[in-house]
Each structure stands twice: as C-alpha cells, then as structure tokens.
Design a protein around this nucleic acid. Structure first.
Lengths: 357, 357
DNA sequence: CCCTCCTTCTTAATCCATTAAGACCTTAAT
DNA sequence: ATTAAGGTCTTAATGGATTAAGAAGGAGGG
C-alpha cells in the first residue's frame, strides 16, 4: 500500500493516531467509521473531523481483510494472456457472466497474471481473495498447484477437471461428436479437422493421432475424441483424416489451416473447426480458392461466439450462463462439489450442406 | 478468507501452528517460506513437510499485504456494468492495454463493482490494491470520492479530470471538432448528431442545447462542444442542429437515432455519432430507408473500434496505448501528475462524401 | 587456548483494525 | 431511595505474518 506524501514526510495516519489526538481509545475511532450507533453524535463528528484533518485514508483494507477473514474478491486465472482473452469471443462471453455475478454480489474480480519466471512476487500466493476461478488451464500447469495450495474454494471451468472441486463445462466428447455427426449425416466422408489449443508449445502444422491424443488441454482432447468417435462409427478411418493444428486462435490462423486442408488431394468436402474464429478463417480460405460454401465445402465451428453474422453452423454453448454459475459457486461454495455439464446445441446455418454428388 | 474444512472441524493452521509442532519459533517457519538461505536445509525440509501434513495454506495473503504494505494489485473502476464493458469495443481495447501492462508487471487487476445501495460491503473501501484506475465516471459520482479518500495513487482515464492526479485521454473538443470539420469541409451544412453517454438518467430522445451542455460525462461534453464549435464557425446555427440522445451504446440504439434524425425535414445530409457502434446503427437505419451512403448520407463515428469492416469514417484514438500508459502510471506514480492527451486521427473511409448537389 | 567469524535460530517490535465484554454514568420508573 | 435500563466509551484479545537485531554454538586461524 503505497502512500501519497504531500510535500514533506508524514507518518502514516491510523486509527491510533486519531485516537491519540482526541484522547479516546482506538476502538472508539473504529466505531466512528463502522458503527455510528455506538457513539454519541458529537464525538463521532469530532472523530471524523480530525480524521479528515489528519488525512486519514480510512480503515486499512488489508488489515480489515485480515481481521474479518474476508477479502471481498474472487480471483480469476486464465490460461492465456489477457490481451488474448479480451479478444476472444468465447472468453468474453464467459467473463460477462462471471463479472455480472460478481457485480451483483458486490465483490471484486481479481484478474491474475499467470506466474512467470520474471515476476517478483507470485501473484496467486499473494492474491487477497475468497475463492479462485480457474479457466482452461493445461494439464499440470504450476499455477493450478499454487491455487490448490491456498485451500480456498476453487471452481474450474472447462479444464482441467480437479476431483473434489466444482467443475463447469460441457460434455466435450458429446459436443464434438454432435458436430462431426452433423457432417456425417449430411453425407460427408472426406472430412478435415482444424484445431487450436491442443498443446502449449506453439506448434502449427499437421498432427498425427499420437500427437492429437497427447493434447494437454483436456477439453480440446475431449472435443477431438468426439470428432474421432463420430467419424469412426461412420466407418471413416481416422488415421486418414487430415488434422491441422494451430497455435493461435485467429482468423488468419484459420485461413492458413483452410489452405493446408483444402490443398490436399482428394480435397475434403467438409471441415471441423474447434472455434468459430478458426472457422471464419477457413471460410476466408475457401473464398480465396473460389470454393462455394456450402456447395463445395461445409464448415462447422464451435461455441457460437462469432458465428451468427457469418451464417456459420456451430455448436452453441451457454458461455454466459457458465460464467454466472461459476460466480455463484464461488460466492457460495457447495458442500458437495459437483461436475456440472451445461447443455450444448447444434446450430445449423448456411455453412453446411450435403456434399455435391 | 474462507477455509475449506475436510470433514471435521479443524483449527486454522498458521505459521505458529507449525512452529509449535516443531518447537521452533514462528520467525523460523516464515524464513522457511520466504528466505531459504536463512535456514539449514534439514530444518527447512522438516518445516515444509510438517506444513504439508498440517495442510498449511501458505502465508496468509492479507497478513502479508498488511505487513509488507503492498497489495500486488491495482483496482479498476468503470462507469458501466461489466457486462456492458465486455461488449464495448472501445472499453475492450483499453482493457487490453491495461491488462497487458499489469500482466508484465506481475500484478493483478481488481475489477470493482460500482458501489450500490444493496451491497453489504463497500467495494472501493475494501479493495486491497496499491492504486486505482478510474475510467469514465460521471461528474460527482460517489465512487470517485471513495477512491480519493483512500489516498492511493489514482489515474483517471477519459473523465472526470481530477486536479492533482494523472489524467489520460484525448483532446475531446479538438477531436469532436475534427470530425465535424470533416463534414463541413465536404460541404455538408444539414448535420444531425447522435450521442450516447451524456447523462446517466437513461433518457433517450431529442436534447436541446441546455440539456446537451448539462451532460455529466465530461469527455462527451467536450466532444460535443467540439462538434458545436466546428459547426458554428462554419456558420451553422447550432440550435437548429437536430441532436438525438441515447441511453445505450448499441447498434439498435443507433438505428433508432438514425430513424429519428433521418425522419426530419429537411433531412440531414450527414450525421455525427459519438461512437462507432452507434454509427453502425445509423447505417442500418439508412439502409432501412433505402438511402445510399455516402451518396445520400454521410456518417462519422468515433473511436475506430468497430469501423474498419464497415468502411466507417471515424476518429481513431489509441485505446490500447492509453491502457498501457495508464498501467505504467499506476505502477510507478509520477511525482508531477500530468494531463496526458493522446493523439487522435481522422480516418476517412467510405461512409463520407460531399452531399449531392 | 583464545579470538573471530559464520551459520543458524530466536526475540520482539511492527503492520492496522475489529469487537465481545465490561465499566461508568445518567435517566427513568417503582 | 432503589433498581433497572440505556447510552457511551474502554479494555484487551485477536487476526497472521515479516524482519532487524541479537544470541548461541561451532569452525577456523593464530
């Protein structure tokens, strides 16, 4: 807690300073701020006036938090940089839900930077919060261990599932399968896949099944296994399904994946993308190549976060509701931690159709 | 700070608990966590092991913050609900910049709910932070007084200007005038104005000059006065300029304003909107009416936050840089508070042209 | 053997506030 | 006059940790 000094040096003003000035006890001064009814109006007025004269900054927040055992804030830990998070429609939807819940409860939302080598202090260990919300952390991320070591209520969203703590997300394998089955049912058999967020190593390019299954992000692993299961049960050989992995979730990345996938022979008649943003990039690539969507190519996105205007078929998940539910669980931790799977829904729009005969 | 109880009751574990268990002093245990070099390896190992066995949650964050006089977080106060902020492109750009600066410094960003009647605890007074960033608060908002009472470093962005504290924003009157002058220079004289964020009273509809000047948001007041100054100096009678005020910054609101303004006789040949989102709505309204933009109608937005794809002429302001600069000032408060006005720039796109003869 | 220097740990002050319970005084009722 | 009841303020315990300075013990040098 830094202090502003006006001109010369100035000892910090505390309740005691004021008490000494007036010859009353510290408790009395405290009551003047927190329990007006415990004091005579006259004394209270004098106390507040002296406080003002001395430049008292009000009861110290850290001291109150220590004494009261309450922080009035919940911590949020997100896998990506915030610059990224604030640009990702899915994350924003979730934040909206969470922030609204926090707002209604009158508690703050402390957005924490991921612990990094260079930082002077470990943000998670020093966070003055009543609970943590962990969103989309890869398997084995050290920040998760730090969070758990604090022994505060923890809610995990999307990944990774931590036994003993509430979990919120969707049934990823089922949702992935739903997306893939949609293409299968339309008659597609030459399907390509573009996925972002499998590994944290920044690789972009073709990924074989072994690498696919080794993804460190649990939710994406599940989503992919849903893709695979639906394909396999339709008789598609998964090993032959071209699978392009991206490091960044951007339209440009999607376009790159689109060019890679559409450059294959035989050309896929449909592409599964694990985010809407990626799917939009794939539509760009299709446009580059003069392909008609959905005539020559069907595309399915994920999340329904940026899909509507583009007429993209996608899986809708209740971002805001998940955020709001996370907020509620943080504020009133349940006795029995539950694994809550929210509904998802296939939204069919104009980007998918049967393949041309 | 809530505590998780596994099964039965369990006294809270503190440094002292561990110290007692091992027959060492509390200080020793503290060193085991914060200064490994002060202890023999053997004792340190034993301490950490006992800590683990007892389920110690690590040094209490509030207590550390109190003792160290450092919170490791900066508070952010924003005029709108967060659900709104997370949907507003301008706010998001600013957040990105701020969050990135915070992230690089390894400090948290505590997003505070605005104090409301119903809340149990005053969020601003209880916020454990080292500094506050206040963004776009209306004149006389009580939260600002609370922030100032904390006597921590404060940085204000956009509004309101608080003497003695750093201020970041743009030269609003100049930027407003630049936008209006663009239309004037193209030859427009029948200009309409649509503005959001003047008052906090939720009113939508025509606003006369008195109400315009009574706006409680300083930045918007300045922007508007720039509009007026440019018009007046071109000989346009401001009292006759139709001025439509909106309560919400949304595309739908813009459309409403567009219909209101374009329904006037004589119809304006150009409209100034004080946000891009509003401007997009006005384009919608023009499309509804079958008007050609920019043939029948020119539209100028503001902020360059959602303008590019739509080909909207707008004033660009460096959202992210302002956010990043705010972050730096929060982390290293300057001796002399400065009023920093960032550059703005007119970006001419396809939504403006000379009026038809 | 004595002195010095380390290493390792302890002492004790400090950070700032909250609040139950008790003390004291005044007023009102019986 | 006596007692009860309020009103107003104080006492003292409490929340959990950090760190400068001091003490005790062992190792090395002369």
């Amino acid at each position: 807690m830094q202090e502003i000094r006006y001109g010369g040096k100035m000892a910090r003003v505390t309740l005691q300073t004021i008490a000494d000035r007036l010859g009353v006890s510290r408790a009395t001064v405290s009551y003047a701020f927190s329990r007006p009814d415990q004091l005579s109006d006259d004394l209270r007025r004098r106390i507040l006036q002296v406080a003002d004269e001395l430049g008292y900054a009000g009861p110290n927040a850290a001291a109150r938090s220590l004494r009261l055992g309450r922080a009035g804030a919940v911590g949020l830990l997100f896998s990506e940089t915030l610059a990224y998070a604030f640009a990702d429609p899915y994350a924003l939807g979730f934040f909206q839900g969470l922030a609204t819940a926090a707002e209604e409860a009158g508690v703050g939302l402390l957005i924490l930077p991921l612990p990094r080598g260079g930082t002077r202090t470990p943000p998670v260990l020093d966070a003055v919060v009543d609970a943590f919300c962990v969103v989309s952390l890869p398997d084995g991320h050290p920040a998760l261990a730090e969070v758990l070591s604090r022994r505060l209520p923890v809610v995990v969203v999307d990944e990774p599932y931590v036994p003993g703590h509430p979990f919120l997300g969707i049934d990823e394998p089922a949702a992935g399968a739903r997306a893939a089955r949609h293409l299968i049912e339309l008659g597609h058999r030459r399907i390509g896949v573009a996925m972002v967020g499998l590994h944290g190593d920044g690789r972009t390019g073709w990924a074989d099944p072994a690498r696919q299954r080794g993804a460190v992000f649990e939710a994406m692993r599940g989503r992919r296994s849903g893709y695979e299961a639906a394909c396999v049960s339709a008789g598609v050989d998964w090993a032959s399904v071209p699978f392009y992995e991206l490091a960044r979730n951007s339209r440009a990345a999607g376009r790159e994946a689109g060019h890679a996938l559409l450059g294959r022979t035989p050309r896929p008649t449909a592409i599964l993308a694990n985010t809407d943003v990626l799917a939009l990039g794939i539509l760009d690539a299709a446009a580059d190549l003069g392909l008609d969507v959905p005539g020559d190519l069907s595309v399915v996105g994920f999340s329904d976060s940026a899909a509507e205007e583009a007429g993209l078929t996608t899986i809708r998940q209740a971002k805001q509701e998940i955020g709001a539910a996370a907020g509620r669980l943080l504020l009133e931790p349940p006795d029995e931690p539950e694994r809550l799977l929210f509904p998802h829904e296939l939204i069919v729009r104009a980007s998918t159709a049967p393949p041309r005969p």
